[in-house]
Amino acid sequence: MSSTSPSTTSLRVSDLSQSGPTAFNLRPDKAQLQAIAQELGLDGLRKLSFEGDVRPQGKSDWVLQARLGATVIQPCVVTLEPVTTRIEAPVARTFLRDYTETDEPEAEMPEDDTREPLGTSIDPAAIMLEALALNLPEYPRKDGAGIDSVAVTEPGKKPMTDEDARPFAGLADLKARLEDDKDS
Rank of each mutant, 00 (worst) to 15 (best):
residue 134 L to F: 04
residue 66 A to K: 03
residue 38 Q to K: 15
residue 145 A to V: 06
residue 127 I to C: 04
residue 144 G to Q: 03
residue 85 T to C: 01
residue 56 P to H: 03
residue 114 T to R: 12
residue 108 E to S: 12
residue 129 L to Y: 08
residue 30 K to D: 15
residue 164 D to A: 05
residue 80 L to H: 02
residue 166 R to V: 04
residue 120 T to E: 15
residue 69 G to E: 10
residue 178 L to N: 09
residue 11 L to K: 07
residue 21 P to T: 00
residue 176 A to W: 04
residue 165 A to D: 09
residue 80 L to V: 05
residue 18 Q to D: 13
residue 143 D to G: 07
residue 135 N to T: 10
residue 169 A to N: 12
residue 158 K to W: 01
residue 44 G to L: 05
residue 81 E to D: 12
residue 111 E to D: 15
residue 68 L to S: 03
residue 19 S to R: 09
residue 37 A to W: 06
residue 94 T to G: 01
residue 84 T to V: 11
residue 98 D to L: 03
residue 154 E to W: 08
residue 169 A to K: 11
residue 69 G to S: 13
residue 79 T to A: 01
residue 123 D to K: 00
residue 98 D to W: 05
residue 158 K to D: 08
residue 178 L to M: 13
residue 114 T to I: 02
residue 181 D to V: 10
residue 37 A to I: 09
residue 146 G to H: 10
residue 17 S to P: 05
residue 11 L to M: 14
residue 114 T to S: 14
residue 94 T to F: 08
residue 44 G to S: 08
residue 111 E to T: 05
residue 4 T to W: 05
residue 30 K to Q: 15
residue 24 F to Y: 06
residue 183 D to I: 06
residue 35 A to V: 12
residue 34 Q to W: 04
residue 20 G to P: 01
residue 5 S to F: 09
residue 157 K to Y: 11
residue 168 F to L: 14
residue 58 G to L: 04
residue 51 E to V: 13
residue 122 I to G: 02
residue 176 A to K: 14
residue 8 T to H: 13
residue 106 E to Y: 10
residue 137 P to L: 10
residue 67 R to Y: 09
residue 85 T to Y: 03
residue 141 R to S: 04
residue 44 G to P: 07
residue 6 P to L: 11
residue 153 T to P: 01
residue 96 L to I: 07
residue 72 V to T: 08
residue 7 S to R: 09
residue 148 D to F: 07
residue 153 T to Y: 01
residue 57 Q to M: 13
residue 100 T to D: 04
residue 156 G to F: 09
residue 170 G to Q: 14
residue 94 T to Y: 06
residue 16 L to G: 05
residue 12 R to T: 05
residue 19 S to D: 11
residue 77 V to Y: 00
residue 145 A to T: 02
residue 100 T to M: 08
residue 145 A to F: 03
residue 99 Y to L: 03
residue 46 R to T: 13
residue 22 T to Y: 03
residue 161 T to S: 15
residue 39 E to Y: 07
residue 39 E to L: 10
residue 5 S to I: 14
residue 45 L to S: 03
residue 168 F to V: 07
residue 183 D to T: 11
residue 85 T to L: 01
residue 98 D to K: 07
residue 110 P to N: 05
residue 115 R to K: 15
residue 100 T to W: 00
residue 123 D to Q: 03
residue 154 E to P: 00
residue 180 D to I: 11
residue 176 A to V: 05
residue 65 Q to F: 02
residue 45 L to A: 06
residue 108 E to V: 11
residue 70 A to G: 08
residue 79 T to F: 00
residue 6 P to M: 04
residue 39 E to D: 15
residue 184 S to P: 05
residue 80 L to T: 10
residue 7 S to Q: 12
residue 43 D to S: 10
residue 106 E to F: 12
residue 35 A to Q: 15
residue 131 A to R: 04
residue 102 T to G: 13
